[in-house]
Deep mutational scan, measured.
Amino acid sequence: MGFKLLSKLLVYLTASIMAIASPLAFSVDSSGEYPTVSEIPVGEVRLYQIADGVWSHIATQSFDGAVYPSNGLIVRDGDELLLIDTAWGAKNTAALLAEIEKQIGLPVTRAVSTHFHDDRVGGVDVLRAAGVATYASPSTRRLAEVEGNEIPTHSLEGLSSSGDAVRFGPVELFYPGAAHSTDNLIVYVPSASVLYGGCAIYELSRTSAGNVADADLAEWPTSIERIQQHYPEAQFVIPGHGLPGGLDLLKHTTNVVKAHTNRSVVE
């Protein structure tokens, strides 16, 4: 069995187990497998329904001669939608809004960016022009300005110390501490036991640490421990890039980060 097929099978099995364990909360999309990078042309966006009122959005972007996937989250909030992270750029984010209108038909009224990198804030200006209120932590807003990236308009308070959590509509926002970046936030959907790890969490097929220019490698494993301790009931975990899975993604990420750190020390 090929690795790609095995990865998709694991996603399907995880979703099936969740649907059985929580039949009222989960209505997993039966329309197909989780979209992969090879299936999404740059400039297009796919939506994948995880649970009743919960979707991931998947886009792709060219970077350094390669094409990478990027995940975000959409959560229903009454007759409105909360968006977590842009679709990595203005063109993708405009396509995301169009796809949401086509498939869901509810307005996106608020959006949260989970850290300051372009795959999370690139497209904020498109959201703002569409009347979406954009939010991020003060740290993310400051770092985005320093980096020359787009800056969300509103500040999220109460997320300055490791372990801080605040309720934001249908989700809980959690600051686990520094990891992929010093400002990275985690998003949890309690009604569906869905954990969105953003770039602080890796997919299972990833074996290298990737972009760690703004990471705190020493603190990252401790931050992941905080996530595990705060959300032990999480059933569906979405990484910032690639295929979702279960809580095993947290341990896998820790292993990859520690291996990278150990290699760096040896070198």
Rank of each mutant, 00 (worst) to 15 (best):
A25W: 07
I17F: 02
G169N: 03
P239T: 11
A144T: 08
G89Y: 06
P138F: 00
V45R: 11
V45C: 13
H57L: 03
G72E: 02
S193M: 13
H230V: 09
G163Y: 04
Q61Y: 05
A144P: 14
L81K: 00
D214F: 03
G89F: 05
G198E: 04
S7A: 05
L250F: 11
Y68M: 05
S193W: 10
N255T: 10
F116S: 07
S16V: 14
F63M: 05
V42E: 11
E33Y: 15
L81P: 00
A51H: 11
M18S: 04
M18G: 08
G177S: 04
P152F: 13
V166G: 10
V237I: 15
S16N: 08
H252M: 13
F174H: 15
R120D: 13
A136P: 01
G148F: 13
K102S: 07
Y231H: 03
H57E: 05
A218V: 08
N211A: 08
R206E: 15
T253K: 03
A218K: 02
H117M: 00
A51Y: 13
L106T: 05
L6E: 09
P190G: 10
V121S: 13
S38R: 09
L127S: 09
E101W: 14
S208R: 10
C199L: 03
S137T: 02
I20M: 01
E101R: 07
L9N: 02
A90P: 13
G169S: 07
V124H: 07
E267M: 10
N92T: 14
L82H: 15
Y135S: 15
D52R: 06
G105Q: 14
G169K: 12
T261V: 13
N262S: 09
G2T: 06
G197Y: 01
V54R: 03
A19N: 04
L195Q: 04
I238T: 11
V42H: 03
M18C: 03
E80K: 12
S223E: 03
L47Q: 04
I50S: 11
L97I: 00
S160M: 07
L24K: 06
R46D: 07
H180D: 01
L83M: 08
F26V: 13
L249N: 15
V37E: 04
R142P: 14
R120T: 05
G122R: 07
L81F: 03
A133M: 15
A25N: 01
L97Q: 00
Y202T: 02
E157K: 02
G197N: 02
H115Q: 00
F3Q: 13
G123C: 02
D214T: 07
E157F: 14
S223L: 12
L173N: 10
H57M: 01
E39S: 08
E150F: 00
T182F: 15
V266Q: 13
F236Q: 03
S181A: 09
Q103C: 03
A87V: 01
N262M: 09
I151E: 01
G65P: 02
F174S: 12
A136Q: 02
S62N: 14
L127C: 05
R206T: 12
C199V: 02
A21H: 12
D248T: 15
G246T: 07
I186R: 01
F236M: 04
D64L: 07
K91V: 13
R141M: 08
S205G: 12
D216Y: 11
D216R: 08
D64W: 04
T14M: 14
V42G: 08
D118E: 05
S30M: 11
L47H: 05
V42A: 06
W55L: 06
E150G: 03
P239Y: 02
G169Q: 05
Y196G: 09
E225P: 15
V121D: 08
G242M: 04
A144E: 15
D79T: 05
Q103K: 09
S27P: 09
Y135C: 15
S191P: 11
P35E: 08
L83P: 00
S193N: 13
I201E: 03
A165K: 13
V171I: 13
V112K: 00
